[in-house]
Design a protein around this nucleic acid. Structure first.
Lengths: 245, 245
DNA sequence: CAGTGGTCTAGACCACGAG
DNA sequence: TCGTGGTCTAGACCACTGT
């Protein structure tokens, strides 16, 4: 049997082209989170490469957190694990001192023209129709977070038909199951401000109370923007940790 | 000539032991930022290893941002580049729209007993003597940041004798030059709160104005804590960006 | 046990930077 | 032109996982 040929610019190193090839298969959904990929030996055979070269390609994707190696078992497409990444920042504690996952109450869900900053983030036309959703997150029935969420209509038509009771607090699994959209990574922009009259009443605090504002854009494996989200929560519940070098 | 022998637990892989060895040399100051290390071929010869094994060791340290490879030139000890990391967060703009580096005015510099949270961070006894410094950072003569800084006396005696005019806005180069202490990495904890009466008057705003509070602990290559710092700045000047996967 | 990834060898040749 | 790191080969043997 003839070995397969790597696609892409042949001036690029082979390990990069192999990495590109696997990354694209994940982006296209041909390989899904949890799937096992071919073993290093099989890949080497298939593409006519030395084992070391295949290892180098896989190392790149492990570094990008697209693949995961498991010694003795195989190499797998990684399941992104930031469903509840807010809770690396906001620590909502129950009476027992354990972390709680806030319940979710959807206040609005409708089609609206996208404002400029949302349209830019989602790469759609300003004023084009998009799905808008407004959620309240509660702990012990007390409101702790307010979220504005925008989704591009094109990829998320199916989201409009879902019964509200089928939408749990975690949206990304719903995006995957109902709309076939997998979130691979997200970027967040964080600042703080006074709550203001509108959010003060929603969060049941004084208007001068400081709130943290997190804007998040979630991306697919192919770098398409899937979701724009702005969350506001009480600053006193918030702590963020970072390591810099 | 006999090859040198790697130190450390011989149950560990050779590439790890070589990485440990180089990391330790950097930590001890035997190799300093900017220094060129031996070439891969020389290291391989010296330790009796294959070139690929040496590359693997160096790859670890590059990943840890301790070394930097420069194709065609060599491999060097990296100079940490976060002297002004605050300014990845706070954007202080001058009249010309360019980033400004705030001036620094030291309000107090003295020996005080370390409070509990500082002592814990710096691994010294609670109430033991430490160097305390209180600084104001200004842009266009307007105060924008207030900083409380604690240094362990042991490593920073020399810091007490420096003339104030020799201390510029960037402290880490001073720590290196005057005290022989190199900051290799830092951890930051970030939250927000209302300014309160004390800081409102220092920053010249209303007490209810939201401020960002960043606590930072700076570490040496050997993981010893070198500095505890708490900075407060106006939230409206602040924006933080993160990528999550 | 078979199959996987992890470590390591001993080279070859290429691409880059500086003198 | 020389010395550096970057790519790639073609194996060997070890350590881990599941049957």
């Amino acid at each position: 049997m003839q070995p397969s040929v790597l696609s892409g610019d042949d001036r690029l190193p082979k390990y990069m082209r192999l990495a590109d090839s696997i990354r694209t298969e994940v982006a296209l959904g041909q390989r899904r989170p949890g799937d096992q990929i071919a073993s290093e030996a099989e890949l080497a055979m298939h593409y006519g490469l030395a084992p070391g070269t295949v290892r180098q390609a896989i190392a790149i994707l492990v570094d990008e957190r697209i693949l995961e190696r498991q010694h003795g078992k195989g190499t797998f497409v990684r399941r992104p694990k930031f469903d509840s990444s807010m809770f690396r920042f906001f620590r909502f504690l129950g009476a027992d001192g354990l972390d709680l996952e806030p319940e979710s109450r959807i206040l609005r869900r409708l089609i609206l023209p996208a404002p400029e900053h949302v349209a830019q983030a989602l790469s759609i036309d300003i004023g084009a129709d998009a799905i808008f959703m407004n959620r309240l997150r509660l702990v012990d029935s007390k409101p702790v977070l307010v979220e504005d969420i925008w989704l591009p209509l094109q990829r998320f038509y199916a989201f409009l038909d879902i019964e509200e009771r089928e939408i749990g607090p975690l949206l990304y699994p719903v995006y995957d199951r109902e709309c076939g959209q997998i979130v691979a990574r997200a970027e967040e922009y964080l600042t703080a401000e006074a709550a203001g009259v509108e959010f003060a009443s929603m969060l049941n605090v004084e208007p001068a109370e400081p709130v943290i504002v997190i804007e998040r854009i979630a991306y697919a494996y192919d770098d398409a923007a899937l979701e724009w989200r702005r969350s506001r929560g009480l600053a006193k519940e918030f702590s963020y940790h970072a390591i810099i070098r």
